[in-house]
Design a protein around this nucleic acid. Structure first.
Lengths: 203, 203
DNA sequence: TGTACATCAGTGAACGCGCGTTCACTGATGTAC
DNA sequence: TGTACATCAGTGAACGCGCGTTCACTGATGTAC
C-alpha cells in the first residue's frame, strides 16, 4: 500500500541506517538486499523504489556512515590524543557496525566500483581536512602529512586489532596505537619549545 | 584419473598459490572454489580431495600467503626505512594479489572463523617479532610497541591508498606513510645522541 | 469541506544465476605376486 | 623384471540454496472537482 511522503523519507533513512550498520559489520558481499530490508522492517521488493541497485545502496550507505561520525574529540584540549584514545577503544573494536567506516570497509571499498570509491574518498578527505586543521605543526603541508599518517595509523591499528584472535594481542595493538599516534609528535614539541623560546626572548 | 604423489603435492601447492592470490585480489567472499580450481588449472570437483571446505582453504591460503613474504628490507642499513619504502610502493598498491596479506585481507579476516583468524594472528606475530628485533630503541617493550605501531601505520596507509579513487591522494597517502613510519623515531634519535654524548664523555 | 479516483510505496511470488558441496565415473598409479 | 589388479586423484553433472532483480497486485495517499 502507498504511504505518506514523510513515511517514505523515514523508510529511506531506515534502509540507509540498516545498510550502513550491516555493511560495516559483515562487509558488502556478505549482506544481501533482503537482509537490509528485513533489518529496516520492510520486505525486499520495495527496495528498488528507493535505490537503483545494490551498488547504489553501497555508495550511499558509505556516504551516510561517513557523515554520521563522532566529532567530540575535536573539542578536546589536545584533539589528536583525544581522537586516538576514543578511536582505539575496546568498544569501538568490538562494534564495527557502529564504528568508523574507514576501518570497517576500507579494504572492501578498494574492490568496489566508481560510486562506492568516490563516496569513501570524499569522506576520507573531510576527515583529513578536519584533523589537519587541529594538528599542531609548523606548516600546512606538515599538518596535512601528519593528519594523513595519523588516520592511517588509527585505521591500521583498528583493522589489526579486530583481525587478531588473541584478546591480549588485540589490546596491545590498541595501546601501541594510542601511545604512538595520539602523542604529541616529539620533533614538533621541540619546535614549539623553540618558538616559545624565541617569543620569550623577543619580549 | 589418478596422478602421482609428487603431482598431488604440486597440485595442492598450485591451489594454495591461486587461492592466496585471488583472495588477496578480490576478498574471500568474491572468490569461489570454482574460480580457484580453474586458476590452478583443474576442475572444481577435485577440490575436496585436497581441502575439507572453503573455510579450510581460506585458513591455509592465509598462512601460505603470510609465509611467502618479502624479507629483503631486513638486510638494509636502516630496516624500518627500507620496509616502509618497499611496502608503500606504487606497484604494491596496484597489485594486492602479490602483496601483503595483512593489508589485503585484514578487514576480511576479522569477520571469519577461528581457523582463518588463528592463521592470520600467527603470521602477524611473526612480522611483529621480526621488526621488533630490528627496531632501534632502548627497551624490548619499546621496540615491540614501535614494531606494532609501524605495521599498523603501513597496513592502514596501504588500505587507504588502495581505497581512494584519486591517484594523487593515493600517492599522498603513500608518501606520508613512508615519511612518518619509515623515519627514525625522533625521540629515539635524541636518546641515541644522549647515549653517544655520555659515551664520548666517558672516554 | 466533502467526495471520487488516479497515483504509487510496499508486498510477496517468481526469475535466472552462481555458490559450496556431493557423487558416480574414469583411467593412470603403484603394489602384490 | 614383468604382469594383474586394487587404489584413488581428478572429471563433470547434479543437488539445494540464497543472491539481485522484476513484476502483478494491493490499498492508503493525495489531488481534482
Amino acid at each position: 500500500m502507498k504511504v505518506s511522503r514523510e513515511q517514505v523519507a523515514i523508510h529511506r533513512r531506515r534502509i540507509l541506517d540498516a545498510a550502513s550498520r550491516l555493511f560495516r559489520q559483515k562487509g558488502f558481499d556478505a549482506v544481501g538486499v533482503d537482509a537490509v530490508m528485513k533489518e529496516a522492517g520492510m520486505t525486499h521488493g520495495g527496495f528498488y523504489g528507493h535505490f537503483a541497485s545494490k551498488e547504489d545502496l553501497m555508495a550511499r550507505a558509505c556516504a551516510h556512515g561517513l557523515a554520521l561520525a563522532d566529532d567530540s574529540w575535536a573539542a578536546a584540549a589536545y584533539p589528536v590524543a583525544a581522537l586516538a584514545a576514543a578511536y582505539l577503544d575496546q568498544e569501538h573494536c568490538d562494534n564495527p557496525g557502529d564504528g568508523c567506516v574507514l576501518a570497517a570497509l576500507g579494504a572492501d571499498v578498494s574492490r568496489q566500483g566508481k560510486g562506492v570509491r568516490h563516496a569513501f574518498t570524499a569522506g576520507f578527505r573531510e576527515r583529513v581536512d578536519q584533523l589537519a586543521r587541529l594538528m599542531p605543526g609548523h606548516s600546512r603541508a606538515a599538518q596535512r602529512r601528519r593528519a594523513i599518517a595519523t588516520w592511517a595509523g588509527l585505521v591500521g591499528s583498528m583493522v589489526l586489532a579486530r583481525a587478531v584472535d588473541d584478546p591480549a594481542l588485540s589490546r596491545e595493538i590498541q595501546k601501541a596505537g594510542v601511545a604512538t599516534f595520539g602523542e604529541k609528535p616529539p620533533d614538533d614539541r621541540g619546535r614549539v619549545r623553540a618558538r616559545r623560546g624565541r617569543r620569550a626572548a623577543a619580549r
